[in-house]
Computed example of a mutant assay.
Amino acid sequence: MNDRDVLAELLKPIRLVSVFHSRWIVRGPWNLQGDDDHCAVLHYALRNSCYVKLQGQQPILLRQGDLAIFPYGTAHLLGDGSPGPARPLCGVLPERRLGESAIVRIGDEGALTELMCASLNYDLGGEAPLYRSLSPVFVLGKPDLDSEPLLLRTLESLVPETERREPGSPLVTLRAFEMVFVLALRVALRNLTVDSPALRALAHPGVSRALSVIYGEFQQPWTLNLLAQRAGMSRSSFAKTFRDLVGEGPALHLTRRRMQEAVQLLTHTQTPLSSIPELVGYKSSVGFHLAFRKILNDTPGRYRGHHGLEGGPAALR
Rank of each mutant, 00 (worst) to 15 (best):
M1I: 13
L10H: 01
V17P: 07
F20G: 01
I25A: 09
V26D: 00
D35P: 05
L42H: 00
H43M: 09
R47W: 06
V52P: 01
L54C: 03
Q57A: 11
R63W: 02
G65N: 05
D66I: 07
G73M: 02
H76R: 03
L77D: 01
D80F: 06
A86H: 00
P88E: 00
G99T: 06
S101F: 06
S101Q: 09
V104S: 09
G107T: 11
A111Q: 15
L112R: 13
L115K: 03
M116L: 15
Y122R: 05
G125P: 13
G125H: 08
G125T: 07
L130M: 11
R132Q: 14
S133R: 09
S135K: 10
P149S: 08
L152E: 14
V159Q: 08
P167S: 10
G168Y: 13
L174R: 06
A176Y: 10
M179K: 15
L183R: 15
L185K: 08
V187Q: 11
N191I: 08
N191D: 13
L192T: 05
T193F: 07
T193Q: 05
D195H: 12
S196C: 13
A198I: 13
L199N: 11
R200S: 09
A201G: 03
A203F: 13
H204L: 07
H204N: 12
P205A: 03
G206K: 07
S208N: 12
I214D: 02
Y215E: 10
E217M: 07
Q219L: 13
L227D: 00
A228E: 00
R230G: 04
M233R: 11
S237D: 14
F238E: 02
F238I: 01
F242I: 08
E248W: 04
G249H: 04
G249I: 07
T255A: 13
R256E: 04
R258P: 09
A262L: 02
L265G: 01
L265V: 04
T271V: 10
S274T: 09
P277V: 09
P277I: 15
V280E: 01
S284K: 15
S285T: 12
G287C: 11
L290Q: 12
T299G: 13
T299Q: 07
R302C: 03
G305C: 05
P313R: 12
